[in-house]
Amino acid sequence: MPMDNWSDCKEILCIRTDNMGDLLMSTPAIRALKETFGCRITLLAASASADIASLTGLIDAVIVFNAPWNREDTDPAEIFSVLEEIRSRRFDAAVIFTVYSQNPLPAALFALMAGIPKRLAYCRENPYGLLTGWIPDQEPYTFIRHQVKRDLDLVASVGAVTSRQQLSLCAGPDSWKAARNKALRQGIRFEAPWMVVHTGVSEKKREYPTAEWVAAGRKIREELGLQLLFTGTAGECGHVRFLIREIGEGAFSLAGLLSLDELAALIGHAPLLLSVNTVTIHMAAALGTPVVVLYALTNPQHTPWKVSSRVLTFDVPPFLRSKNEVVRYVHQHHLSNISGRATPDDILQAVRDLLSP
C-alpha cells in the first residue's frame, strides 16, 4: 500500500500510551517528524508516562489518557471525553507507536473516530480502513530490531528522517543543584568516587533478587571503593533502606526524595548507573551516562541505545512469564538458549570494565 503524502501535516498526534521508557525510545522518531515536517507534536500518553514528556524537549502538548488497550482501570467516561478533545484539535495525522507484541488497532479505531485523516502504524493483520499507512509487522517472526530502530523505520515510511538518533531528555542546572543538595544531606561526598543504583521495577518479573543486590553492593564497596547512591520511588523506600542497612557504610538513599527532573539530572551527572531494565536505563542512554543493566529476559529489543553499557541477563520464573503468545514465542525461539543468571561477580566486573579508563 503506498504511503500518504505527509508534507502538509503540521499537527501530528503521537500515540504512546504505555511507560516512560517506551516514550523515551520513541523520541528519535518524534524528532524525525518535527525536523522533516516542521510540525507541532501532541502526545497521547498514559498518566504513568506523561510527566517525562516535558523533559524530552520535543513534545508541544500532552493529552493524558489511560487507554484501555494498555490499562485495566480505564474509566469508560474518560474514553469519550478524550475522544472529543482530540476531535476538537483537528489533527492532520496520527502515529501509533507499539512494541511488536501490541495490537495497534484499538488506537487506530480511536484515531479514526476522532476524525484524524492520516493514521500510521505497524500491524500484523490487514487493518483495512483503520490505517491509511500500514506497515506489515514482520517482528518478531522474521527478525527483531531495537525498539528505537523500529520506531524510526515507521516514520521513515512517510518520509520523516533525522541524522540525530540519540534519545532525547533534558535536565537543567537547577535540577542538578537540587538533586546534589539532597544527596549531600544524606551524607554522600561527591569529591569521592560514586555511582547511582536503581533497583525498582514496574513489573515483578523484572526484579533482581534482593540477596544478590546486597552481595553485589558489598563487592563494589569493598573492591572498588565506590559510594552507592540508591534511587527509587516512595513505595520502594523500605526495600532501599533494607539494602543500605545490609550493604553498610558507603550506601545512601534518595528513594522517594527526587522529582523526575532531579532524577534525570542525577543520572546525567553520575559516572555510572547500575539498574534493572526500567526507565532509568533509557534516561542514562539519553544523557550519555554509562550503564550496567540487569536485564530480565522479557523484551530483548529494549537494551540501552547508543551509550556505553553492559547487559547482564537473567531469566524470568515460569509463573511470571507473559501470557501474550507473541512474547512467549520470543522467549521460546530467541531467548531459550540464554542460560544462567547474572551474578554479583558479573556485576562487579561490568562496573569495573565501564569505569576503567
Rank of each mutant, 00 (worst) to 15 (best):
H269Q: 14
L335W: 03
Q102N: 12
L224A: 12
F91Y: 15
H282V: 04
L23S: 01
W213E: 07
I52A: 09
P127D: 06
A179R: 00
L354Y: 12
L355A: 09
I135H: 00
I52S: 05
L33E: 00
A286I: 11
A270N: 11
A265Q: 08
I52E: 02
M283N: 02
A211M: 02
L355G: 11
E78Q: 15
Y100S: 04
D151S: 13
T298V: 14
I86M: 07
T142P: 00
A284N: 03
D22F: 04
R71N: 12
D346G: 07
E262L: 09
V99W: 05
Q332A: 14
L273I: 07
Q138E: 13
F143E: 10
S163H: 10
M3H: 04
L312W: 15
Q349H: 12
E236G: 10
G238R: 11
A29D: 08
T231R: 13
A265L: 10
P136C: 12
A121V: 10
M1H: 03
V64R: 14
V307K: 08
A111S: 14
I116N: 02
G21V: 10
S7F: 06
L169K: 03
V327D: 14
A215E: 08
P104G: 03
H146W: 10
S322C: 02
V161N: 09
Y141C: 03
T289L: 07
T233E: 09
T278R: 02
A94H: 05
V316C: 00
D153K: 05
I144Q: 06
L229W: 04
F319E: 14
H282Q: 05
R245Y: 10
S336N: 09
V316P: 01
G115T: 03
P68A: 13
A286V: 08
I247S: 07
P106V: 10
V330Y: 04
E262M: 06
Y295G: 06
L131T: 01
F80K: 12
L355Q: 08
N5W: 09
D8R: 15
F230A: 06
Q227C: 12
M20Q: 09
L169S: 07
